Simulated assay, not measured.
Amino acid sequence: MPNRGDRGGSRTRAHIADVATALFLDRGFDDVTIVEVAAAAGVSKVTVFKHFDRKEDLLLDRLPDVVEIARAAVRERADEVSAVEAIRQTLLALAEERHGLSALDEGIEPFLRIVVEAPTLIARLRVFEHEIEAALTEELAADERFSGDSALLAALVVAAYRIVAVETVRRRLAGDDPADVAAAHRQRLNQAFDAIEYGISAHAPW
């Protein structure tokens, strides 16, 4: 169980991220400095960097949540559920609740616009793809119920979700009907994971 210091640190991290996000939404990512974020949050620049390795992580502060969600999907699945199916169901659940990580959250367009318009944020997301792929590979390799190629499956899952997410973001920013976008998001998720589960499982059981 986290101690009081851990909880306090989590609150401080969340507060800094919230303040930074508000500044980025108001003025743009490139026009806000770390010093300005620290001042607005009432903390020092050192404190900001204690909680965040880089400026991009102030806006993309939920990336660590993605890692844990992916790991938990594999680790906590029932024995009769494949790793692919467990990840699929987790992603569909995020879509159903319009979770921010699905890009289906109401009013998320300003946030998405900041991300797509800042090359450094796009670069950070590309690095994160490698990070989540490595985490999934590690989790699958440690799972005694999994007998396939952990690195291959992790790469396929990350690539499949990237394709789905990019199209969802494009449609949200284009102003398409949110209900239609959500339905298409779920359909593409199922198509992608069907391709992984059934197109490959004959050769490498997941």
Score class of each variant (00 low, 15 high):
residue 162 R to A: 11
residue 132 I to S: 04
residue 130 H to M: 09
residue 195 A to M: 11
residue 126 R to C: 06
residue 110 P to W: 01
residue 67 V to K: 14
residue 150 S to F: 01
residue 46 V to R: 10
residue 89 Q to W: 04
residue 191 Q to H: 09
residue 42 G to R: 10
residue 88 R to L: 14
residue 106 E to A: 07
residue 7 R to G: 00
residue 77 R to L: 04
residue 172 R to T: 02
residue 126 R to F: 08
residue 121 L to W: 06
residue 52 F to P: 11
residue 163 I to L: 13
residue 36 E to A: 09
residue 191 Q to F: 11
residue 23 L to S: 06
residue 82 S to N: 07
residue 112 L to A: 12
residue 162 R to Q: 08
residue 40 A to G: 05
residue 173 L to R: 03
residue 191 Q to A: 12
residue 191 Q to V: 09
residue 148 G to M: 04
residue 18 D to E: 15
residue 165 A to K: 06
residue 148 G to N: 11
residue 26 D to G: 10
residue 22 A to R: 14
residue 88 R to G: 00
residue 53 D to E: 15
residue 120 T to F: 01
residue 204 A to Y: 06
residue 17 A to P: 06
residue 14 A to R: 15
residue 160 A to W: 13
residue 159 A to P: 02
residue 59 L to R: 08
residue 178 P to F: 05
residue 137 T to P: 01
residue 86 A to N: 04
residue 135 A to E: 13
residue 95 A to I: 02
residue 114 I to M: 08
residue 41 A to Y: 06
residue 188 R to W: 11
residue 8 G to W: 01
residue 55 K to L: 09
residue 118 A to P: 06
residue 177 D to C: 03
residue 180 D to L: 09
residue 201 S to Y: 10
residue 88 R to D: 00
residue 110 P to C: 06
residue 142 A to Y: 05
residue 111 F to M: 12
residue 172 R to G: 00
residue 169 V to R: 03
residue 181 V to Q: 01
residue 64 P to V: 10
residue 66 V to W: 00
residue 122 I to L: 15
residue 179 A to S: 11
residue 76 E to I: 01
residue 151 A to F: 03
residue 137 T to L: 03
residue 150 S to N: 04
residue 61 D to H: 13
residue 17 A to S: 11
residue 84 V to A: 15
residue 195 A to G: 05
residue 16 I to Q: 07
residue 84 V to N: 11
residue 161 Y to V: 13
residue 82 S to I: 05
residue 28 G to E: 08
residue 33 T to L: 00
residue 72 A to M: 02
residue 20 A to I: 03
residue 131 E to A: 12
residue 152 L to W: 14
residue 167 E to G: 12
residue 169 V to A: 02
residue 26 D to H: 08
residue 127 V to D: 15
residue 64 P to S: 08
residue 73 A to V: 00
residue 89 Q to C: 07
residue 42 G to H: 09
residue 31 D to A: 15
residue 189 L to Q: 10
residue 204 A to G: 06
residue 46 V to P: 01
residue 15 H to C: 06
residue 8 G to I: 04
residue 61 D to S: 15
residue 157 V to G: 02
residue 89 Q to D: 15
residue 17 A to E: 03
residue 111 F to C: 10
residue 157 V to Q: 06
residue 46 V to T: 14
residue 105 D to F: 03
residue 54 R to E: 13
residue 20 A to K: 12
residue 5 G to V: 11
residue 193 F to C: 04
residue 80 E to H: 15
residue 61 D to W: 03
residue 154 A to P: 05
residue 51 H to E: 02
residue 206 W to G: 13
residue 99 H to F: 10
residue 198 Y to I: 03
residue 16 I to W: 03
residue 78 A to M: 07
residue 9 G to S: 07
residue 174 A to G: 02
residue 7 R to P: 00
residue 85 E to G: 06
residue 132 I to V: 15
residue 105 D to K: 14
residue 123 A to S: 06
residue 64 P to I: 09
residue 73 A to N: 02
residue 184 A to T: 12
residue 68 E to N: 07
residue 46 V to Q: 13
residue 95 A to E: 08
residue 124 R to D: 08
residue 65 D to G: 02
residue 48 V to G: 11
residue 47 T to D: 15
residue 48 V to D: 05
residue 172 R to Q: 03
residue 140 L to T: 08
residue 118 A to W: 05
residue 36 E to Q: 13
residue 131 E to T: 14
residue 134 A to T: 13
residue 186 R to N: 02
residue 141 A to N: 10
residue 140 L to H: 04
residue 74 V to M: 07
residue 187 Q to Y: 10
residue 138 E to S: 14
residue 106 E to K: 01
residue 66 V to H: 00
